[in-house]
Simulated assay, not measured.
Amino acid sequence: MEQNAESRRMLADSEVQPPREEKPLRVLPPSKKPKKKWFSRGLIYTGLIILTIVCFIPFLMMLVNATRTNGEIMSGFSLIPGSALVDNYAILSDYINIWTGFKNSLIVAVLVTLLSGYFSAMTAFGFAFYNFKGKNVMFIFMLVMMMVPGQLGLIGFYEISKTLGILDSFIPLIIPSIASPFVVFFIRQYTQATLHVSMIEAARIDGASELRIFHTIALPMMMPAVATMSIFTFIGSWNNYLMPLVLLFSPEKYTLPVLMGFLKGSQVAENLGALYLGIAISVVPIMIAFLFLSKYIVSSISAGAVKE
């Protein structure tokens, strides 16, 4: 027993570490990396600000020229607003009713955007999570239709609209635009990357109907893609010139691009200020659409897949 106690004491003494030597604290100089980081970040921000100003200058010129006289515009470039806004608006209003065209374009563009977003999302949901006969053939046909210009079927579409008696109305401008192959393709690809099939199966086990699954689970997760495509759909419908020109005959039903096209060769074209004012009015809805919906573009592009 005494021998064991002595051996344990010797082992404990051998495990005792020698006292550490205390060294004075050394203050290191500040690292230079944060300075380089702030410098590179400031350089990037400066470049982005300059690029933003360069992109905004054409819109600023348009707004400024809308307030200047024809002689002032011909004299040269200026960022100082003029005092001829009321006169330019009077000249523009005497020739065309721009607010009637604005209302017609807004009705068509809003209805096309809403209907195209909803039914394209429903179609994309079906292609993504349902298996049915001829699914692959229909999807390939849709991809082929993406490559066919819409102008090729203009004459046939005019004859069909004439047979159905829907010419000179907004129906042929709204209903065919609902079926957009590119919108369906984009939303389908986005849905497959963000919405996992296990969520759909869990909702089915809980007793949810297919329409409820689409409206409560799928559609909210599709909203970034739907909003992104809604921007381009709204702009495309707002700027559509050829179809309204061919299908509409009554001046009170003309959309804004058609009315702006009538300004060429007219008395308004001789007054550049009035022409700039009409262009500025036509651009405002597009700028508002980008202002409220552009944030969804980044979220739809940066979206990743849902892991199991």
Rank of each mutant, 00 (worst) to 15 (best):
E15H: 09
A128V: 12
V110Y: 09
A66L: 00
V197K: 12
G165W: 06
L245R: 03
A203Y: 03
M142Y: 00
I96W: 03
L263F: 03
A227K: 06
A12H: 13
V86C: 02
L245T: 12
F141P: 00
L277E: 11
I281G: 05
N131M: 03
A208F: 04
I213L: 06
M61F: 10
I281Q: 06
L256C: 07
L164Y: 04
P244V: 13
S14F: 09
M229W: 00
V226R: 02
T163Y: 03
D168R: 06
A305V: 11
E308V: 05
L293S: 07
S40C: 09
T123G: 14
Q151W: 10
L256V: 13
Y95V: 15
P285H: 10
V108N: 07
G134P: 03
A269M: 00
Q267M: 10
S31F: 01
G134M: 01
Y118R: 00
M147S: 15
F186E: 12
L242K: 07
I288R: 10
F132Q: 06
P19R: 14
S294H: 09
F141Y: 05
Y45G: 07
V64A: 14
W38A: 12
T194V: 15
Q17K: 11
R9Q: 12
S14E: 13
I140P: 00
F249R: 14
L51I: 09
E159R: 13
K162T: 12
A208I: 00
I174P: 05
F102S: 10
V137W: 10
A121H: 01
G117Q: 08
I166R: 03
L259M: 15
I187Q: 15
M221W: 01
F127L: 01
M243F: 00
T113Q: 06
N104T: 11
M199G: 00
I174D: 04
A218I: 14
A109P: 08
E201C: 02
L115Q: 09
L154N: 02
F77D: 04
L25F: 05
G156S: 15
V258H: 03
K37Q: 13
S300C: 02
I297T: 11
I160C: 09
F234C: 15
M122A: 14
H196S: 15
L51T: 11
M61I: 15
R204C: 04
K253N: 14
S116Y: 01
P58M: 10
T255D: 10
L167W: 00
L152K: 01
K36E: 06
L293A: 08
H196Y: 08
L263G: 02
L173S: 11
I217H: 13
I160Y: 08
A90V: 04
A280E: 11
I187C: 11
E6A: 11
L85P: 06
L92Q: 14
F56M: 15
A269G: 04
I175E: 12
A227C: 15
S294W: 01
T100M: 10
R26V: 15
P18L: 10
G261A: 13
L195W: 03
A274S: 14
S198T: 06
K295A: 14
L248H: 07
A269H: 02
I301F: 08
G261Q: 09
D168E: 07
G42C: 08
F232I: 06
N271S: 12
S177R: 10
S78Y: 05
S177A: 14
L167C: 05
N136Y: 01
E15G: 11
S31A: 05
N239Y: 10
D168N: 14
